[in-house]
């Protein structure tokens, strides 16, 4: 939601004193009026064990984490829900696995009932192979859920027009993909993300496709307000170390965005004074 030409002016207020790295207190992420100190939102899918997941979540510093809703299988009592509760992390139920607006609305209602939150990460995908959002069903579901009082965070294509439509029906954020879910391909269309950031009056959260820390930093440098990732951490060889790397990358990328990078030049520009030859 920060505009490209004036990165220091944000709807969140001043980022802090000059030269001070902005932290979560001076520069919080605000979604639907709720403040978060961390700009890293994590998913929970793909972790090798619940213990590794718990350590990785702690290392990431995240305050908001997605979970999926699935049928209970007998005997499965230790749950991700307990992990989030223990660590004071807010749950963000998703509608993963839904292919129609009707499915997504039903799943969102169950998530609200189970977890006691009206926040939902809205996912309506077109097919199993690409897991790309189905824009028509997505917009329909978003509108219905907003009408039912949900705080809707839609996982969307990196399409500036669709992002605008989602914002217009009342979504609390827009969450364009960097690349397909779980692909780790990084940001395939930075130009589109910039267009989305320029026009948005709600937070823009890059969701899906991030593979490593530099890509998370790049998303923040492009002006995105937060990054949502799961596989990049949970499927890394060392998930806990990668979680820390992502935390640092998001913080660094945000600081760089606020600091204002130098213009790119085609030729050298000396950083030392000209030599004073006799």
């Amino acid at each position: 939601m920060t505009s490209t030409h004036d990165p220091m002016t944000t709807a969140h207020g001043a980022p802090g004193a000059p030269g001070t790295a902005p932290d979560g207190h001076a520069d919080p992420l605000v979604i639907a009026g709720r403040r978060f100190g961390s700009r890293l939102i994590t998913g929970t899918g793909g972790a090798p064990s619940m213990q590794v997941l718990e350590e990785a979540l702690a290392a990431s510093g995240t305050e908001l984490t997605t979970v999926a809703m699935r049928r209970v299988t007998p005997g499965s009592d230790g749950s991700v829900w307990d992990v989030l509760n223990r660590n004071g992390i807010a749950p963000l139920p998703n509608t993963a696995g839904c292919f129609t607006a009707a499915d997504a609305v039903r799943t969102a209602r169950l998530g609200r009932e189970a977890l006691g939150t009206d926040w939902v990460k809205l996912e309506v995908v077109a097919d199993e192979r690409t897991l790309l959002p189905d824009p028509v069903e997505l917009l329909d579901a978003a509108e219905r859920l907003v009408d039912e009082g949900f705080t809707v965070l839609p996982y969307t294509n990196d399409d500036p027009v669709l992002a605008r439509r989602l914002e217009r029906v009342g979504c609390a954020a827009v969450m364009p993909l960097a690349a397909p879910i779980g692909s780790g391909l990084g940001i395939r269309n930075p130009h589109n993300l910039e267009l989305i950031v320029e026009q948005a009056d709600v937070p823009v959260i890059v969701d899906a496709g991030i593979g490593t820390a530099s890509e998370a930093a790049q998303a923040m440098e492009l002006g995105c307000d937060a990054v949502l990732l799961a596989s990049a951490v949970t499927r890394a060889q060392d998930p806990v170390l990668m979680a820390r790397a992502m935390r640092d990358a998001v913080t660094a990328g945000r600081a760089a965005r606020l600091a204002g990078r130098i213009p790119v030049r085609r030729h050298a520009h000396a950083s030392s004074p000209p030599a004073d030859h006799p």
Binding site: A68, R70, A114
Partner: peptide, 10 residues
């Protein structure tokens, strides 16, 4: 009757 719970995902 469907009974659902939060699992790892997303």
């Amino acid at each position: 009757v469907d009974v659902l719970t939060a699992v790892q995902g997303g």
